[in-house]
């Protein structure tokens, strides 16, 4: 077994490079490893291309911190708060700097990652016909379905292959094999399309725990570059069966990021002044305990015996 456990700061230092195409969570509002968002900001990574359908407020935070050169995705904002103030400042006033915006819808960024994952030259879709997304993002090409007897337009979506996908899971072993449950958005496509995968695990378990239920594996360890043990590393995003969403945290971020000074004060308090992920958890303290899911609603046992 190849041991892939390392600290999140080491993983970000070694595997996220300036200018990379990066996915941080691809499951819309759940399992977003915000611990990685914060670490990327701390390390001052630059000119990243953030790729995601929706990663709640993570992308907005990175834009405000000056880490982002381009957004390739469907949505940037704050799901329960509203608009993304940093996204607005960058797009409208080039603060802190200009941003390339590559418009997609959720389904088309999904099919772009699908094509990237499985080596398709492109993915033909019926969506975004009639939408200005076709016009504002030159990546798309129009074609006619060659199999149709009638003239039937289709949109061709080129593959998207991230350099790094950073994904939150409930548990993983030291080799990066992992279990994920709950809705997964585009996490699997993002992982399989990416050159390097960093797993942010709420819990590290023995390998036989993962191998006992291979149908629950999001991405097998042989495709994983690093596995980082960060309990509650998705906070303030939820993680099925482990952590509730901290909606008040998102709302506080929304209110404080309304102007640049407020955002910088928020950043100082929650990112720069804390000692990495453990310091962040310590600062949350009782608030984090209150978000922990204490109940049990276990799945039925699945038998894999072959004898």
């Amino acid at each position: 077994m190849i041991e892939k456990i390392c600290s999140l700061s080491d993983a970000v230092r070694d595997l996220v490079r300036d200018g990379d195409g990066v996915v941080i969570g691809a499951s819309l509002e759940t399992a977003i490893p915000f611990a990685a968002t914060y670490e990327i900001i701390r390390q001052g990574k630059k000119n990243l291309e953030m790729i995601a359908p929706i990663s709640d407020a993570s992308t907005d935070m990175l834009i405000g911190a000056g880490c982002v050169g381009a957004v390739t995705g469907a949505w940037v904002g704050n799901v329960s708060g509203g608009l993304g103030h940093n996204y607005r400042r960058a797009a409208e006033k080039q603060i802190p700097h200009a941003l390339d915006i590559n418009d997609y819808s959720n389904f088309t960024i999904g099919m772009a990652l699908f094509a990237g994952a499985y080596g398709l030259p492109y993915a033909p879709v019926r969506s975004i016909l009639g939408s200005d997304i076709i016009n504002s993002n030159p990546a798309f090409k129009m074609a006619t379905n060659p199999f149709s007897t009638e003239t039937e337009p289709v949109v061709l979506v080129p593959p998207v292959k991230p350099d790094v996908a950073i994904l939150g899971v409930q548990r993983a072993d030291a080799a990066g094999n992992n279990h994920y449950w709950g809705s997964s958005g585009l996490a699997q496509e993002a992982a399989l399309a990416a050159e390097r995968v960093i797993i942010v695990a709420d819990e590290i378990v023995e390998p036989d725990v993962i191998s006992s239920d291979p149908s629950r594996v999001l991405v097998p360890g042989f495709r994983v570059a690093a596995v980082c043990h960060v309990p509650a590393g998705t906070h303030p995003a939820p993680l099925t069966g482990r952590w509730q969403r901290d909606s008040a945290f998102f709302n506080d971020y929304h209110a404080r990021s309304r102007d640049v000074d407020g955002y910088k004060a928020w950043l100082d308090e929650w990112v720069f002044a804390v000692e990495g992920a453990p310091g962040y958890a310590k600062k949350l303290g009782d608030r984090l305990s209150a978000l922990k899911i204490a109940g049990s609603r276990n799945a039925a046992h699945a038998n894999y015996a072959a004898e």
Binding site: W75, E92, S105, T108, I128, D132, N135
Partner: peptide, 26 residues
Amino acid sequence: TSYIGGHENVQVKLPGSGGAADIAAM
């Protein structure tokens, strides 16, 4: 839900499609 003022003359940058363009088309 993308650009108030249009893509070339952005007055307000809204969050974007999410799944809305897909749901509206299909």
